Amino acid sequence: MAVDSFINWGLLALEPPGWGGVLLRGLLNSIQIAIGGYAFGLALGVCGAFGKLYGGPILRDLMECYTTIVRAVPELVLILLLYYAGTDALNHVLNLVGIGTVDISGLAAGIFVIGVVQGAYSTEVLRGAIKAVPAGQIEAARAYGMSPFKVMTRVTLPAMLPYAIPGLSNLWLIATKDTALLAVVGFSELTLVTRQAAGATKAYVLFFCAAGALYLALTLVSNVFIKIIERHSRRGFVEQA
């Protein structure tokens, strides 16, 4: 009873004057950015990993610079740099070619920023996973007459999944948390709307605990799917002695 009298639970109602619906919409925006950024980063990671392993000297050096810089600079600084400087640079290029400036949506910019950050880490995770694939499997595929593309899609990528999934799973959870950093550029994800709700009602403990519970719920649900994917990818996998 004492807790109920101290906390106004009505502030979490889904309809105004409650802020529950606003928090859920912020969570949905966070999930959209996390999924988009993670997928974009995974695509960059696949390209970066194969570039580092099988590319020429110039490509390997470029990939090395990319992963080193992104992993060295704090993510908040990268987000500010890519969000503001990247948008400004794109509009300058468009002006030079006579297209004119464009208004880039916060969702697209957020996906791009999170994706670039995720790509550097995905590159290293996938590179290590590919190197963990027994060389004999790849050599056997080549001896069978498979093209490099078929070797990659039918042997290398499926065989490296059990090694890559633990690291990629961590990156997904990191992506869901990195969306909170986009609050500094004004994107209405969960952290920003939580701060707005707390500022308007002065119920800081209530709303930030609610936001923490939503992030925790997202993590728990993600862990269920991660375990299913990991179990599926390891079917028929024989542990090396």
Results as ranks from 00 to 15, higher is better:
residue 64 E to G: 11
residue 140 A to E: 06
residue 121 Y to L: 10
residue 135 A to K: 11
residue 201 T to E: 12
residue 118 Q to A: 15
residue 203 A to H: 11
residue 213 A to P: 09
residue 14 L to P: 00
residue 85 A to M: 12
residue 199 G to F: 11
residue 7 I to T: 12
residue 197 A to Y: 10
residue 28 L to A: 15
residue 77 V to E: 02
residue 212 G to I: 12
residue 218 L to E: 02
residue 228 I to Y: 07
residue 66 Y to F: 14
residue 203 A to P: 10
residue 178 D to S: 08
residue 134 P to G: 05
residue 55 G to R: 04
residue 84 Y to K: 12
residue 142 R to M: 12
residue 176 T to G: 01
residue 57 P to A: 12
residue 1 M to G: 13
residue 73 V to D: 00
residue 100 G to N: 08
residue 23 L to D: 06
residue 44 L to C: 13
residue 226 I to G: 01
residue 73 V to K: 00
residue 32 Q to F: 04
residue 179 T to N: 03
residue 133 V to P: 00
residue 105 S to H: 08
residue 175 A to L: 04
residue 130 I to M: 15
residue 104 I to H: 02
residue 40 F to E: 05
residue 114 I to N: 02
residue 119 G to I: 13
residue 64 E to L: 12
residue 42 L to R: 06
residue 88 D to M: 15
residue 136 G to P: 04
residue 89 A to H: 07
residue 47 C to S: 10
residue 35 I to D: 00
residue 91 N to Y: 08
residue 133 V to Y: 00
residue 15 E to F: 11
residue 113 V to T: 08
residue 138 I to Q: 12
residue 130 I to D: 02
residue 76 L to D: 03
residue 66 Y to E: 10
residue 78 L to I: 08
residue 52 K to V: 02
residue 126 L to E: 02
residue 132 A to W: 04
residue 95 N to M: 12
residue 70 V to G: 00
residue 238 V to K: 08
residue 25 R to Y: 03
residue 99 I to T: 10
residue 78 L to V: 05
residue 116 V to L: 15
residue 198 A to Y: 11
residue 197 A to S: 15
residue 159 A to L: 12
residue 148 P to L: 13
residue 201 T to I: 14
residue 112 F to Y: 12
residue 108 A to I: 14
residue 82 L to H: 04
residue 41 G to E: 02
residue 221 V to R: 04
residue 198 A to W: 11
residue 87 T to I: 13
residue 92 H to R: 15
residue 17 P to Q: 05
residue 202 K to Q: 13
residue 46 V to D: 04
residue 42 L to V: 13
residue 213 A to V: 14
residue 124 E to D: 11
residue 134 P to D: 09
residue 132 A to C: 05
residue 142 R to N: 10
residue 177 K to Q: 09
residue 131 K to E: 15
residue 62 L to G: 06
residue 179 T to W: 01
residue 26 G to A: 11
residue 82 L to E: 03
residue 163 Y to W: 07
residue 93 V to L: 14
residue 95 N to I: 08
residue 31 I to M: 13
residue 173 L to I: 00
residue 47 C to M: 14
residue 177 K to M: 10
residue 125 V to H: 03
residue 135 A to Y: 01
residue 60 R to C: 01
residue 167 G to I: 04
residue 17 P to L: 10
residue 133 V to R: 03
residue 89 A to D: 09
residue 93 V to Q: 05
residue 36 G to A: 11
residue 42 L to H: 06
residue 50 F to H: 05
residue 209 C to N: 11
residue 51 G to C: 05
residue 222 S to E: 04
residue 238 V to N: 03
residue 92 H to W: 14
residue 132 A to L: 06
residue 73 V to P: 01
residue 111 I to R: 05
residue 154 R to M: 14
residue 225 F to P: 01
residue 187 F to C: 00
residue 9 W to M: 15
residue 234 R to H: 07
residue 204 Y to V: 14
